[in-house]
Design a binder for these strands. Structure first.
Lengths: 163, 163
DNA sequence: GGAATTCCGTTCGCATCCTAATTATAAAAT
DNA sequence: ATTTTATAATTAGGATGCGAACGGAATTCC
């Protein structure tokens, strides 16, 4: 049957284009990073957490969630998987029996260069056609957008679209 | 090739910082968009698909996947949910019995302005502190990054990190 | 014609994120 | 001291994405 294309102005597409670009870049970077990491039995999200732990070990799960910008539930599940794979371990806090602190195990520490090389290669491929100045510009703008969104999400989500 | 912005011997955190920023922006935008859309019983991913259909209806699922930059598996699941909610419907192709074409139903068409207003509000909040020129600059750079990644993922993933 | 290949959509299993509710513990208020 | 409130982590359940594998259908190649 002929495609009865519903006529539409170009507004919805152009408004959505920004969102698609942001999503594509984030997802394609994840895909590429996963390809590099798969031979080592790691995933991209796990590497974000491991890299954080390589910087500083022994933080609580709430702290890790804040540093990575995800929720505590997501941290819980990831630490589950990383612990099962023997990359990290949970240790109880001495003073507060509610909290658990996450520590790297030796097997993870020895793979440190794998993680940073994989991240570096993804960056290299992402920014291949960009000059150093353009990369700086891009990251600066992205940080500002992140700040805007952080503020927007901190307060109440104000207005809703009328029906 | 960027020679200065991402030095290979920087610590893992700065190498990862780019990845975190891209992920945060994409995820926060989704979160904000979901908040706007929840009263209407929609999710952000569904809106990306609906907006595409508002532009042009009756494409096959493979075509939709290509246009949205996701896989056919993801499209299949989303069309399942959208069909269950009576926003769209699958119709068999006349010539090729393998393919199914996705059409909007009237209930979706009538909500068109909801979708574009929600997307516009997210953009407005994302770019609140940016000038129009900066937004253009950002989107242009992001499109170039997307192109780089697309090319990187099109070919074989070349080198693996040594253990 | 017939066989091999390619293509479309689906189901399955997994990882990652979310919100809401639950459990356990700690801290503050009365 | 007891009650209330707040916090840490988990469980439960859903949405979104992926790859692998499958069946059905079309196409291509002898």
């Amino acid at each position: 049957m002929p495609d009865t294309a519903i006529a539409a102005n170009e507004d919805s597409q152009s408004e959505n284009e920004a969102g698609l670009v942001f999503q594509h870049v984030a997802r394609q970077r994840i895909k590429l990073l996963d390809a590099f990491l798969a031979p080592h039995g790691l995933t991209s999200a796990q590497v974000y957490l491991l890299n954080r732990l390589l910087q500083e070990d022994g933080r609580t799960q709430v702290e890790l969630a804040g540093q990575l910008g995800i929720g505590t539930v997501a941290v819980s599940g990831m630490v589950d998987r990383l612990e099962a794979a023997d990359w990290v371990e949970r240790r109880p806090d001495a003073k507060d029996r509610r909290t658990k602190r996450v520590f790297l195990k030796a097997s993870a520490t020895s793979k440190k260069h794998v993680l940073s090389e994989a991240a570096a290669q993804v960056n290299e491929m992402s920014f291949e056609t960009l000059s150093g100045a353009e990369v700086d510009q891009l990251l600066t703008l992205m940080r500002r957008v992140r700040g805007n969104l952080r503020e927007a999400l901190a307060g109440e989500v104000p207005t809703l679209v009328r029906d």
